[in-house]
């Protein structure tokens, strides 16, 4: 990876403009990822943005970098494969709350316990937007949606707490209404060695009439303005992750240095797989045949 010489953010301008609804929170997330990559000096060809399916998962199409726009809920395993094949690339996974915490939550938990060295930015709008407004794993109790006209009767997932207890080593929350802070948070997440989750409030202006920009603005505060230390203890971080109704903390909630999956994987000791020669050691092969005789 190139050392951090800041790059012009224009390098990351995408080939087409986003087709998101005007005012969608995802615009702020896109801009933040572009700024974070520029700030960290990651060249577009060394950046890999992997998504699943959903409004927010269209993001790879709107940024100049390598990208994979995969299946609903499968961004994490696809990103794992791409990353393990070429560990020289910086991988950022993007998608929505349905994609990551609903259909894809199984993969997410396992990627976190592996402490895979990737960054995952979830654009959490607490609703299914692309499918026109059904309840999501982070919809609050009582939320009336197309699929829950009487109000949602299921408790929402707490993605931050889930990430902390699953083994993620960098857990943060962003808000696209605080774009500057979000860009800094994503940049820090990308610089972290290990699994980084940035759960990001990214309001859906079309289908979520409860968790709106004004709703968030009234509640959010920046952890950097307090004396909270995300590296102090898992328990304090967990406690912080449960702040909800009145106060919503933004910034890094948990940060911990741990060996990554890549550190333990012996095949990577010889460098990125894709750069290793295709030809095998014939003597090794012949010894394996000899074992069968």
């Amino acid at each position: 990876m190139a050392t951090a010489t800041e790059l012009p953010v224009e390098l990351f301008k995408g080939p087409v403009d986003p087709d998101w609804c005007p005012g969608c929170g995802d615009f702020g997330v896109l801009k933040s990822i572009q700024e974070a990559a520029a700030k960290n000096g990651i060249r577009p060809e060394n950046l890999m943005v992997v998504s699943g399916i959903g409004c927010s998962s269209n993001l790879p199409g709107f940024i100049t970098s390598y990208g994979v726009h995969s299946l609903h809920g499968r961004s994490v395993p696809v990103a794992t494969g791409v990353h393990l094949a070429n560990t020289d690339m910086k991988v950022v996974i993007v998608g929505g709350d349905g994609d990551g915490y609903g259909i894809g939550v199984g993969h997410l938990i396992h990627a976190m316990r592996r402490n895979l060295d990737v960054t995952y930015v979830v654009m959490d709008n607490q609703i299914y937007g692309l499918t026109t407004g059904q309840t999501s794993p982070t919809s609050t109790l009582g939320h009336k949606t197309k699929s829950t006209p009487q109000g949602n009767i299921e408790n929402p997932i707490n993605p931050l707490a889930l990430a902390m207890i699953s083994g993620a080593t960098f857990v943060a929350r962003g808000f696209s209404g605080e774009q500057k802070l979000l860009a800094d948070t994503i940049a820090a997440a990308m610089n972290h060695k290990g699994f980084a989750l940035v759960d990001t409030f990214s309001p859906c202006v079309t289908y979520n009439k409860i968790n709106t920009y004004p709703w968030f603005k009234e509640r959010v505060y920046k952890l950097e303005d307090t004396d909270f230390d995300p590296t102090e203890s898992l328990y304090k971080s967990l406690e912080k992750s449960y702040e909800w109704d009145e106060k919503l903390p933004l910034g890094v909630l948990y940060k911990h240095e741990m060996p990554t999956y890549e550190d333990g994987e012996m095949s990577l000791k010889a460098g990125a797989l894709v750069k290793q020669p295709l030809a095998i050691n014939k003597e090794t092969y012949k010894s394996l045949v000899e074992e069968l005789i």
């Binding site: 992997v50 395993p77 094949a85």
Partner: peptide, 11 residues
């Protein structure tokens, strides 16, 4: 999905 990801990665 991981195997496909690795294929995209080039191995």
């Amino acid at each position: 999905n991981m195997a496909i990801g690795a294929g995209i990665g080039g191995v």
